[in-house]
Design a protein around this nucleic acid. Structure first.
Lengths: 115, 115
DNA sequence: TCCATAATCAACCTATTGGTTGATCAACCG
DNA sequence: CGGTTGATCAACCAATAGGTTGATTATGGA
């Protein structure tokens, strides 16, 4: 896990437990115990996962008596998505240009055949 | 790093060196030495990064004499992007619904004030 | 006040990451 | 053939990840 924001976001997303937690939080706030309920592992392990998500700014935590409700933050997801889309599109556009060049070369070859 | 494809993709993206390599490959094929050139670290370290990217299916490698040209594969990027977008939208839609409910409650309150 | 509940802190353990250096393999070229 | 270049393999190392158990903190309720 690296120090920059984008690396922290992707590292946080690279664990299925944490992704499941985020998926749950997309439906609304939840406490630590509620989030831990579906998993086999200890509450402390979930607490550690939440700390990772918090440091990656993917969640924020409030205070309601002894409960600490977790809330999803979508801003880092947006940044991560933008990074991915950017390079997907660069690659796609490049392939499109290559395709056009090939078409052009084929046409030129056609022309030569007819001479 | 986990065994499932999505975890492997995100884990691969969680390193700035690997992201820079992918960014370079979005512009077209490159050999290991070409990819290593901008970095301070050893060629072997880059080779390891490429192995991570290959296992995550983010790149494929050909054979051209003693060169091993690397090529970007966008399919895993698409899957990763879809995962992120899905939960961003779930969260956004939920907030929209909450907003509408609040509007409705406000209107009801208005009505009561006028009785 | 005393106890139960929610959650975190602390110490520990094992496996993995991300880097190093040195040796090796594979292909071309004089 | 022998040397050079491109790249990987192997062994090693320090730091981190992801889990455990046990102790601790904070709040609410009888």
């Amino acid at each position: 896990m690296e120090d920059d924001q984008l690396s922290a976001t992707f590292a946080a997303l690279a664990d299925p437990t944490r992704r499941a937690i985020l998926a749950r939080l997309a439906d609304g706030e939840a406490t630590v115990n509620q989030l831990a309920e579906p998993f086999e592992m200890s509450l402390q392990a979930i607490s550690k996962h939440l700390k990772v998500l918090e440091r990656a700014r993917l969640i924020t935590r409030g205070r309601d008596a002894q409960w600490r409700p977790c809330r999803l933050q979508t801003a880092p997801l947006e940044t991560a998505s933008e990074w991915i889309e950017r390079y997907r599109h660069v690659a796609r556009d490049r392939l499109d240009r290559l395709d056009k060049e090939i078409q052009k070369l084929k046409q030129q070859q056609e022309g030569q055949n007819h001479e």
